[in-house]
Structures are given as structure tokens and as C-alpha cells.
């Protein structure tokens, strides 16, 4: 907390945090800290303050502080949230209970083990797959995509891989093998990309016995997603797509072609030239 903040009106909020260190062999236990909270202070700010002033041994994972990197997912007052984009006083002005994300193993304190999560993500081949491999390796231009085609998948491209959806998913809670909302939503993100030709390659990972058909459409993943990705909707679209393809009711998608780049740049005479650099090289 900087000096400016310390002069503002503050409220004491109790942070009850789960502590666990596998090296000591002790069982996980809850530990309380009193934190002076000012208006606008985020949970991450509170944790930083505890680490700086009360307990340097407290461990969590965070990076960007602005809801972009997806590192600081935690189970705060019984709800999976990002610590960086949730203000303490908007959650509670008395007590915050902070635990690591459910449905993951704990590495230490508030750090979940995301290894399995990223394995699942990797299993759906979350990248553009093309048949023209030579064009991909040595591109001659860009693949055409209209604004309408972009809207088909852009919502699902906002995923920051924070793992909140998996921690909220009741199916993952009962069967950890379930591919999960994050990976399945990413499968749909690429399947619905007009430039992609890899949906057949993703079928095995997406539609096996632990894939999309296991989703019960509880919608908890969409509820907790901090970026509004709506993974449960993506899973329903995956199911619908598979259903229509199995019954041969879906037309083949159009192929996306490369737009060749102009070989020679011809400047527009209406646009004035840029001023010459003022700094010498």
C-alpha cells in the first residue's frame, strides 16, 4: 500500500487464506491476516500487502495485474475469480476466504497445478491446421477472412487460459479425465475459424468418451469466465456441428484462399509522405 492509499479511509478485512506446503508434510490449514482495505483495492493488492508486511512465505501466482494473463485464478469466498480484477469491498467488507482453485492439485498455498489443464488444451490442437502445408511454412500472403467470419469465433478467442472454467465445472469435479470447457471451447474456436481445415483432426480429442458428449450444460464455466467466453455455448455448438455432420446435413465449408500481397508498393498520391527521421542512425 503506498502513502496516498494509507491516508484514505480504510476498513479492516480479515483474509482467511489456505496455507499448504507439501515439503513440510503438514495438512492444508487456514490462516488469518488483518488487512487495511481502501476503496478500489483488489484481492491481489491485498495479497501483495500481506506478503510485503505480514508474511513473506505466502505463495500465489500472478503477473499482469489487469485480467489479461490469467495467472491469478483463485477460489475467493466460494467462487472462482481472478484476484487482480476483483475489488475486495465489492466481495465483502468483513472477511475474504481465499483458497486455490478447486479441481486442481495444489502445488503450494494458492498455486494450482495447471499441468493437466494445459495438456488438455494441447490435446485439441489449438492452432490453425491447413492442408496447404507449403503455404503455411512459406506464406505468400494472408488468408482471406470476412468480418462476419471473424464474429463466428472471436468471442472464444478471448480465452486467457486462467482455468476458472475447469474449477467451476461439475463434470470435471466428478471425472478429472473430462476434456473440460476450456479445451473444448478452444476446439470450437479453431473449428469455426474459416481459415482452419483441421476439424477432422480434432474429432478424436473432442468427441471421444471423455469429450463434448460428457458435458451436462450446467453452464458454470460460462458463469465464472472473466472474459465472457461462454465455453458451454461453444460445447453445444461442437455437439450441434457433430450431429449435423454425422447426418450429412451440414454443407462443406468454402475453402479459404490466400490473398497475394502486392509485389510492388505503389504509394497513394493523396497521402503525404512521412517526415524524415530526426534521429540519425
Amino acid at each position: 500500500m503506498n502513502e496516498n492509499n494509507s491516508t484514505k479511509n480504510t476498513t479492516t478485512v480479515i483474509f482467511e487464506i489456505l496455507r499448504y506446503n507439501p515439503e513440510t508434510g503438514e495438512k492444508p490449514k487456514m490462516q488469518e491476516y488483518n488487512v487495511q482495505v481502501y476503496k478500489g483495492m483488489t484481492v491481489l493488492d491485498g495479497l501483495n500487502w500481506i506478503k510485503e508486511n505480514l508474511d513473506p512465505s505466502l505463495v500465489w501466482r500472478s503477473s499482469c495485474r489487469m485480467g489479461v494473463c490469467g495467472s491469478c485464478g483463485m477460489f475467493i469466498n466460494g467462487y472462482p475469480r481472478l484476484a487482480c480484477n476483483n475489488q475486495i469491498l465489492k466481495i465483502s467488507n468483513k472477511k475474504l476466504q481465499i483458497k486455490p482453485l478447486p479441481n486442481f492439485d495444489i502445488i503450494r498455498d494458492l498455486v494450482p497445478d495447471l499441468e493437466g489443464f494445459f495438456q488438455k488444451h494441447k490435446s485439441v490442437k489449438p492452432y490453425l491446421i491447413r492442408k496447404d502445408i507449403q503455404e503455411q511454412n512459406l506464406p505468400t500472403g494472408e488468408y482471406f477472412q470476412s468480418p462476419d467470419e471473424l464474429t463466428n469465433y472471436i468471442q472464444f478467442a478471448y480465452c486467457i487460459k486462467c482455468g476458472l472454467c475447469l474449477s467451476a465445472c461439475p463434470t470435471v469435479a466428478t471425472d478429472e479425465r473430462f476434456t473440460g470447457p476450456q479445451a473444448l471451447a478452444q476446439a470450437w474456436r479453431y473449428n469455426s475459424d474459416s481459415r482452419d481445415e483441421g476439424s477432422d483432426e480434432r474429432i478424436k480429442a473432442v468427441h471421444d468418451e471423455i469429450g463434448a458428449s460428457r458435458c451436462h450444460f450446467a453452464g458454470a464455466c460460462s458463469d465464472v469466465c472473466p472474459k465472457g467466453v461462454d465455453p458451454s455455448f461453444a460445447i453445444q455448438l461442437l455437439k450441434q456441428d457433430f450431429f449435423l455432420k454425422t447426418l450429412k446435413l451440414r454443407k462443406d465449408e468454402k475453402e479459404t484462399h490466400v490473398i497475394p500481397t502486392a509485389k510492388k508498393y505503389v504509394p497513394n498520391p493523396k497521402i503525404p509522405e512521412a517526415p524524415k527521421p530526426t534521429v540519425k542512425k
Partner: peptide, 13 residues
């Protein structure tokens, strides 16, 4: 894939 096909037949049934 087999499981999803069975699921599709489940819907048709």
C-alpha cells in the same frame, strides 16, 4: 468419436 456417434443415435432414437 465413437461415443459422440452413439450420442447422436441416442438423440435420433
Amino acid at each position: 468419436m465413437r461415443e459422440s456417434k452413439l450420442w447422436v443415435y441416442h438423440l435420433i432414437a
